[in-house]
């Protein structure tokens, strides 16, 4: 069974073209983490409930644990590493720090990736909207309140940065 035929799959990850040789049963999450070394995408359940593995596939949040890598052929993938980093943080990353939106930080990449897509579509959300948006992401540490605050603060930061 470990003899499964390898398949080539090509997609872009955070703007960079990648061609990988993967087993058909390799999940997109494993391909990103193990083959490309992008370990910011976390795995909390591997059955589609927790949202820790969320990445953007052509701009839409998807659970990378539920997709096979081969299904992402031709797609543009964005992981947390492509959202921003310590040098040039995304407003969400700044806001999570300001509003204490994380404790252990394990859910955080999935939360930020999910919210980055959400804020594009809903630039002025209410806290109820944010709760709805992250209702498919579990956090075991924060009780969500400061994640909601962080998202609202990020919306403010994004609005403020507009010319």
């Amino acid at each position: 069974m470990s003899e499964l035929k390898q398949h080539d799959v090509a997609f872009t990850v955070n703007g960079k073209a990648e061609t990988l040789s993967v087993s058909p049963r390799t999940s997109l999450a494993d391909a990103l983490r193990d083959t490309l070394g992008l370990t910011g995408t976390h795995i909390g359940c591997e059955h589609g409930v927790c949202g820790a593995c969320t990445v953007l596939l052509d701009g839409k949040p998807v659970r990378s644990c539920l997709l096979f890598a081969v299904q992402a052929e031709g797609a543009a993938i964005t992981t947390i590493e492509g959202i921003g980093d310590a040098q040039s943080p995304h407003p969400l990353q700044r806001a999570f720090n300001e509003c204490h939106g994380l404790h252990c930080g394990f859910c955080t990449p999935g939360m930020i990736v999910t919210l980055s897509a959400f804020l594009k579509e809903h630039p002025q959300p209410t806290s109820a909207d944010v709760r709805e948006a992250i209702s498919g992401n579990l956090c075991m540490c924060t009780g969500y309140q400061n994640i909601v605050r962080s998202a609202l603060r990020a919306a403010e930061l994004i609005e403020g940065a507009k010319p």
Binding site: R33, T39, E81, N97, L102, F106, T108, I112
Partner: peptide, 14 residues
């Protein structure tokens, strides 16, 4: 937070 929000933490599986 800087490393954790950037997905740059080092957890056991990383």
């Amino acid at each position: 937070d800087a490393r954790l929000t950037a997905g740059a933490g080092t957890f056991t599986d990383d």
